[in-house]
Amino acid sequence: MKKDTRKTSASLNLDIKKIKENARKHVEDGAKTSSYKGNVDEVIALLNASLATEIVCALRYKRHYFTATGIHSNSIASEFNLHAQEELSHADLIAERIVQLGGEPDFSPETLTRRSHADYVPCQALKEMIKENLVAERIAIDTYHALISYIGDSDPTTRVMLEKILAQEEEHADELSDWLKVA
C-alpha cells in the first residue's frame, strides 16, 4: 500500500484564518500579497529598466529588418523582424508584471535609451547589424542572470518570467552567433 505523501495545511503550518484576513484587509493590492518577500519598489525599478531594454532592442531589430541589404539579407532580415516581435512580447510580460506588483510600466520615449541596458546602434552593414544585436543579447543574458540571482526565492513569479525570457534571449544569441559565420 502506498503512503500518502501529500502535505496537509497543518503540516505546512498554514494559518488559513490569517491568510483570509490579510486577503480581505489588503484586497486593493491585487496579486501582491503579504507573502511577497521581495523589495517591491526595487523589483519594479529593475523591471522598468528591463522593459526599456526590451523596447530598445525591438526598435533596433525593426530598423535592421527594414535596412538590411546583401546576399543573405532577406532571410536574416525576416529573423530580425521575428526577434523584434519576441522582444516586444518580453516587454509586454514585464509591463504586466510591473502592474501586478502595483507599479507603473515606464514607456516614456524621452528616457528610454537612458534606462535601457542595451544600446540602440543603427548600423549599415549586415554583419555589423548581427554583431550589435548579438552584443545586446549578451547584455540581456548577463542582466537577466543577475536579476534572477538577485530575486532568488523572494519573488518566484517574477523569477520564472525572467527565466523564460532569458531562455529566449539565449536562443537569439545562438542564432546571431551562427549568422555571423555566414554574413
Rank of each mutant, 00 (worst) to 15 (best):
M1C: 03
K2G: 08
K2Q: 12
D4W: 05
D4M: 02
D4R: 06
T5Q: 03
R6Y: 10
R6C: 06
R6E: 09
K7C: 03
S9Q: 03
A10L: 10
A10Q: 11
A10T: 10
A10K: 11
S11Y: 02
L12F: 03
L14W: 09
D15Q: 04
D15K: 05
D15N: 15
I16F: 05
K17M: 07
K17I: 10
K18W: 03
K18H: 10
K18T: 14
I19L: 08
K20T: 13
K20Q: 09
E21D: 14
A23H: 02
R24L: 13
K25N: 12
K25D: 11
H26D: 15
H26K: 09
H26S: 09
V27P: 00
V27Y: 11
V27E: 06
E28D: 12
E28S: 15
D29Q: 15
A31V: 13
A31I: 11
A31D: 08
A31L: 14
K32P: 00
K32H: 05
S34K: 11
S34C: 05
S35D: 09
Y36I: 09
K37Y: 02
G38A: 15
G38E: 15
V40Y: 13
D41I: 07
D41K: 15
V43F: 00
V43Q: 08
I44S: 09
I44Y: 05
I44T: 11
A45H: 10
L46M: 14
L47Q: 12
L47N: 10
N48H: 05
A49I: 01
A49N: 14
A49M: 12
S50W: 01
A52Q: 04
E54F: 06
V56Y: 09
V56P: 07
V56H: 11
C57M: 13
C57E: 15
C57V: 08
A58S: 15
A58V: 10
R60A: 15
R60D: 04
R60V: 08
Y61M: 06
R63S: 11
H64N: 13
Y65P: 08
Y65M: 03
Y65D: 02
T67E: 13
T67M: 12
A68S: 14
T69N: 09
G70S: 04
G70Q: 02
I71C: 01
H72L: 13
H72D: 06
N74C: 00
N74Y: 04
S75Q: 09
S75K: 11
S75D: 07
S75W: 02
S75F: 05
I76A: 00
N81A: 10
N81Y: 07
N81M: 05
H83T: 07
H83S: 08
H83V: 02
A84G: 10
E87S: 12
L88M: 15
L88D: 02
S89Q: 12
A91K: 01
A91D: 04
D92Q: 11
D92E: 14
D92Y: 04
L93V: 00
I94R: 02
A95H: 01
A95D: 07
E96M: 00
E96T: 14
R97E: 03
